[in-house]
Design a protein around this nucleic acid. Structure first.
Lengths: 354, 354
DNA sequence: CTGAAAGCGCTTACAG
DNA sequence: CTGAAAGCGCTTACAG
């Protein structure tokens, strides 16, 4: 109005409203939040004053300091959002979390685990944190958060005391797929894994690398395959995407000699990539090569539309994580939750070529 | 240790550290942040005290109240995260924003515009907000945020005073596609639009609905088509997805009589769906039907892999929005940014059937 | 029903 | 170089 200010207009405070209404800040606060007995006339005066001043509600920063709660739940994903959201599983889990925490009035803060750069996690104003355990850098995050005394829920994390775990039967589920392949007659099987190491490497799986695996999810799924095919080898990737699956598939299938007759991919995206690689090399699926995935996403790819896979309840997992957060926040006894995947036979598995 | 507490252990405060170190809180603060002259010996004592107590750094809530900054940027998306993230454009833009704000030490808070439920936007502790303008409920968000006096950047928003706009040449870009079709000889053209209304409806486009359009992006793209094909009709959808495109395509192509020879879809996802619908109906693309999209995403669908489309710089748009936020926060003069899309001729357009 | 007071945990001029 | 003080904006016992 008077003079064209460059600075942000000063936001009216509760004190200003109280002053204009001619009451104390305490009374104004009670009236505005109607959290106490206030005379109707007084309330009205306060409300009018607030309206006159354009008071937009309490400053969330002050309120959260006072209350000891920010209403924010941190969600820790891998490196870039682009990578994290490429896999529909992550999006679905996030959506599941938001379902529950959103209904309780909390919003989600996106945090990434960037190697090198100090994590925003160290001083983000979060009430609780959800870790995506398929990430390879959960351990650092857990350390930071526990130091801060903030409740943590880990989806598929390596069981750690003090961290509420939302578990999936990764090992047993993969074993189910492996048995399916074995029952079909396969014995030359190869793995295509999710990112395995803290600094992901695409390359052949070795005992040493498996030993040192940072991703609990990837490790458990490897173990499930080993339960059925001891010593099974394969390749690790840089993460769950069709392209990574394709690259791994190309490597695995290049040499007609040692070529596997079946591939166990650790996600549907990777499996779709393997199918694509096979097609490029002129191999038929499932005629020449059987391929299984994991997740049970519908992939918009006619060539891998009907994968044999384990269907996991991604949204339910997210919701359970959300409920876990809420429980931890109210001091309730955190109950570990374990989800079970379901076998779905698609059209990408068959007996090995004669 | 002593007694198994149910309550969260009390976090050590700066005051506790100072007490243990035998200095004042002010000095402890200076030492911890090294933001002032402190004797080496003193600093060491403070640091040791902090370590002994397991002090995890300043409480972000208190710090942000004091500083007047939370280090959080709100990002307002449509309804559910699942819907928002289904379109790669949104993910890429988000990633672009995170690039810039993350480097400046801010994290992203996910906020959704849910009809009915009061938006978390009214009291989220954000320093600034980025609005995704293709959403149909930007106007409410703008109102809330301006009332709070928080800087706003809108990506493809309807130009509003006080809101920094990251613009895209939606109208002209669509006109380019339309001219391409006209030059090929098409005159029976139909539109498949993004969500148009506050409460999205899938159905035939009418003048009244266009008049009342809530999505500025959708509206501008309609206008661009009308610039070349006055009065062009079509169908609106519930949002950018292959399935929505398919459904709209099925409706548009059902009747062999009035069937268009070309469809202008407002996103590549929608265009892919239209191609799919055509295929289902036994129509060849581009032989029987030409289809153009918008965005320039690579869609993992062999049948719509090579769309004729306008390629838009999604990540750059996000980065520009991020820079806009930073500028607004430092009080710099906000400069409106306008991006230009590029025509890419794919294999989904050809002259109309004879 | 209303107000004075304390305090959430920190940072930042300001003295000394 | 160090400390006492003020204050960010609110909420919540506690008197009255």
């Amino acid at each position: 109005m008077a003079g064209s200010e460059q600075t942000t207009p000063v936001r009216p405070t509760l004190a200003a409203v109280a002053r204009l209404a001619g009451v104390s800040p305490s009374t104004a606060s009670l009236a505005l939040n109607d959290s106490g007995p206030v005379a109707d006339a007084t309330r009205e005066r306060v409300l009018r004053a607030a309206a006159d001043l354009g008071y937009a509600g309490p400053d969330p920063r002050a309120r959260s300091l006072r209350r000891g709660r920010s209403g924010i739940v941190g969600v820790v994903l891998e490196d870039t959002l682009r990578d994290a959201f490429r896999d529909p599983m992550n999006v679905l889990m996030l959506d599941g979390i938001a379902d529950v925490t959103g209904a309780a009035g909390s919003s989600l803060l996106l945090l990434t685990e960037t190697l090198g750069r100090p994590s925003a996690l160290v001083d983000a104003p979060v009430d609780a944190v959800v870790l995506f355990g398929c990430s390879t850098r959960v351990d650092e995050s857990v350390a930071i958060v526990r130091r801060r005394g903030i409740p943590v829920v880990a989806i598929e994390g390596r069981p750690v005391p003090g961290v509420l775990d939302i578990a999936l039967d990764n090992r047993e589920a993969t074993a189910t797929l492996a048995r399916h392949l074995r029952d079909l007659g396969h014995s030359r099987v190869a793995l295509v894994t999710l990112e395995l190491d803290r600094e992901p490497v695409a390359g052949p799986l070795t005992e040493a690398r498996i030993e040192a695996a940072a991703s609990f999810t990837a490790l458990e799924r490897i173990r499930g395959a080993q339960d059925v095919f001891p010593g099974v080898g394969g390749r690790s990737t840089l993460g769950s995407s069709i392209e990574e699956g394709r690259l791994a598939g190309l490597e695995l299938l290049a040499d007609p000699e040692g070529r596997p007759t079946a591939v166990i991919a650790q996600s549907d995206l990777l499996a779709a990539g393997v199918v694509r690689a096979a097609t490029e090399l002129g191999l038929g699926v499932p005629g020449d090569l059987s391929v299984v995935g994991f997740d049970g996403v519908r992939i918009d790819d006619p060539v891998a539309d009907d994968l044999t896979t384990m269907v996991q309840p991604a949204i339910a997992k997210g919701q359970a994580a959300g409920r876990g957060v809420l429980a931890l926040l109210t001091g309730a006894a955190p109950e570990r939750v374990a989800f079970v995947s379901q076998f779905r036979r698609g059209s990408t598995t068959a007996p090995p070529p004669a």
